[in-house]
């Protein structure tokens, strides 16, 4: 596995130094190489670490009791893939994560919109929400287990609670910071309240809401891992805790890798949503990105 990955990482520089690169279609090739290397660059660091890790394990510098070799993890991946347990556990975990996100996100969004648009609601709800927000939601795991047992509801409840607050805070903040001048303009130009909300307030708050969503996704996985390792009979967290019983460090690491990839996937999806939904924003137009 590592050898194919290294050759992929090395290929852009090889193509650049290759004499063919100076043929007539040079600009297209160099542009291609540039785009490929830009796509690969973020992966350079994790791949480097992987190679070093494999080398350390193969040379016996690293005990498999401490950390298994990447190749062992790859074998564990193959084994659990073949017996179907990996996909089953991943889909169970993903399902919990998404249901929790949907419930918590909807609650957070609704409260954020309500309190952002309507002052009396802020007066009634906000200080309570701020108090609850500052309680680490993992601290109520014992209570949640007492309430729901170790069934699905417990995990979904915890994820929903963890996810609701960042979405609430960012929605509220986003709505409150919508340009007053635009709202006044919309009123003078005769927009009814519904249209004012959909055309001015919500799009104005959207960048902030999406930041909340990205933050919530991180909390979503974190909560799920903890909930699944403590009380579960399925899911990635259960898989790793079960493997620990049998000293299968390779499966434990596989579980960690699965979480990392799922987290990255979720983040990439939000970025794609941002690029679509915020296409109007100068920061998402053309090559612009960094400030410098």
């Amino acid at each position: 596995m590592s050898s194919t990955l290294t050759s992929a990482a090395a290929s852009p520089s090889a193509a650049e130094s290759h004499p063919q690169a100076r043929e007539p279609s040079v600009p297209r090739i160099t542009a291609y190489v540039r785009s490929v290397s830009r796509a690969l660059l973020p992966w350079a660091l994790p791949l480097g670490a992987l190679i070093a890790w494999q080398a350390a394990a193969s040379l016996g510098l690293l005990s498999t009791r401490v950390l298994p070799a990447p190749s062992d993890v790859a074998l564990a991946f193959w084994r659990t893939l073949k017996d179907g347990s990996l996909l089953a556990n991943i889909s169970v975990s993903t399902g919990r994560a998404l249901v929790g996100l949907a419930i918590g996100g909807a609650v957070g969004l609704a409260l954020g919109v309500l309190n952002g648009v309507w002052r009396p609601a802020e007066t009634i709800f906000d200080s309570t929400l701020q108090m609850l927000r500052n309680v680490p939601h993992l601290a109520i795991i014992p209570l949640v287990i007492l309430w729901f047992g170790i069934d699905e509801e417990a995990k979904i409840f915890l994820v929903a609670i963890g996810v609701a607050f960042p979405i609430y805070l960012n929605t509220f903040h986003g709505i409150r910071t919508v340009d007053r001048g635009l709202v006044e303009m919309a009123r003078v130009y005769g927009l009814p309240p519904g249209a004012l909300f959909l055309r001015i307030v919500l799009p104005g708050a959207l960048p902030s809401i999406l930041v909340g969503l990205r933050y919530a996704l991180g909390i979503m996985w974190l909560t799920l891992i903890v909930a699944e390792t403590i009380s579960s009979t399925s899911g990635i967290g259960y898989m790793t805790m079960n493997a620990r019983e049998f000293l299968q460090t390779d499966v434990v690491v596989l579980g960690v890798v699965a979480y990392a990839l799922l987290g990255k996937l979720a983040d990439s999806l939000t970025r794609a949503i941002e690029r679509r939904a915020l296409a109007w924003h100068p920061a998402y137009q053309g090559e612009a990105g960094g400030i410098a």
Binding site: M185, R199, L278, W280, H281
Partner: peptide
Amino acid sequence: FQDPRLAPWQR
């Protein structure tokens, strides 16, 4: 208005 007040998310 003194400033254009265009909604940046609308064409």
